[in-house]
Design a protein around this nucleic acid. Sequence first.
DNA 1: CACGTTAGTGAGAATGAGTCTCATTCACAC
DNA 2: GTGTGAATGAGACTCATTCTCACTAACGTG
Lengths: 159, 159
Amino acid sequence: MGPSSDQSPDEAQMDDLHAAVGRRLERHDHRYTRGRRHLVETLARVARPVTLPQIAAHADELPQSSAYRNLEVLERCGVITRIAGTADHAHFELAEPLVDHHHHLVCLGCGSLEDVHLDQELEKMVDAELAQAAASARFTPTHHSLDLHGYCHDCEPQA
Amino acid sequence: MGPSSDQSPDEAQMDDLHAAVGRRLERHDHRYTRGRRHLVETLARVARPVTLPQIAAHADELPQSSAYRNLEVLERCGVITRIAGTADHAHFELAEPLVDHHHHLVCLGCGSLEDVHLDQELEKMVDAELAQAAASARFTPTHHSLDLHGYCHDCEPQA
DNA sequence: CACGTTAGTGAGAATGAGTCTCATTCACAC
DNA sequence: GTGTGAATGAGACTCATTCTCACTAACGTG
């Protein structure tokens, strides 16, 4: 459903993305303003979960309160996903209907996140098993998350 | 390796647990004091991830600074695990060598967590697939986490 | 085009989970 | 018992995130 690569999108893909985001905001009676466009564009370009300071590094000026408020709006409209980990700052990325289903490598050293895509068959089995477990716990599932924790190449495990 | 149920442990199991925790603390040159005992005992009894305020509800008095400090020490010694989610407070639970490997049902309504155990075969397949993905990303894995997000029985999804 | 209405903006204040400081107390070794 | 370093707890503090509020931008209507 989304673009099939985790590289930065080209211009045409970016136009499609903006159109899709615009539709989602409209559906929630929100406007697709310049600040929001900028956030979406940055998230699309970095193509991995990033913190607010990391987003700010890609902008000349990014008023903090507006940025957080817009991230919240975008999250409520299903445009982005907030990932709260152990790191000081929360990470943000484009939400799944806009990009392929994927999971994360979570570095215990620097707190950075990276995307991974798993085999679809395995995903199906996981979902089936989880659905069963959920049913017996009277739990109504919406989605799963599957993260691999460890150390990225720059943070070799401490001896 | 751990007890095979997610019910509160009986007295004998609790003794074993304290002994195991004591050994771990000793290995790190830390003492197994009354406050730490109390934290471990509470976590063992509730048998699900809880926040500090929830732990405090099981104690007459729980000095905040000591509690957080001890949770940190216990985490560093591999006795407990900290789970940082979207909820205001972090959740804490006994670490995996002390209890069976399991995952969580994460309620988007009230933020509560509940344990689920999955089929071991599936776990193996997931680990294998993740190991492969990690290798090609030059990532050194330590463990995985697999959560199911949704709504618990008390928080039926909002229409 | 002017007007009214509603959403968005941004600077600064406020919130609050979690951490730090430091003087006091405890636990263990001898 | 006594000494030594770890543990304790009250309160100050940090800092990511949220809230407030006066102001501006966008959009629909007559």
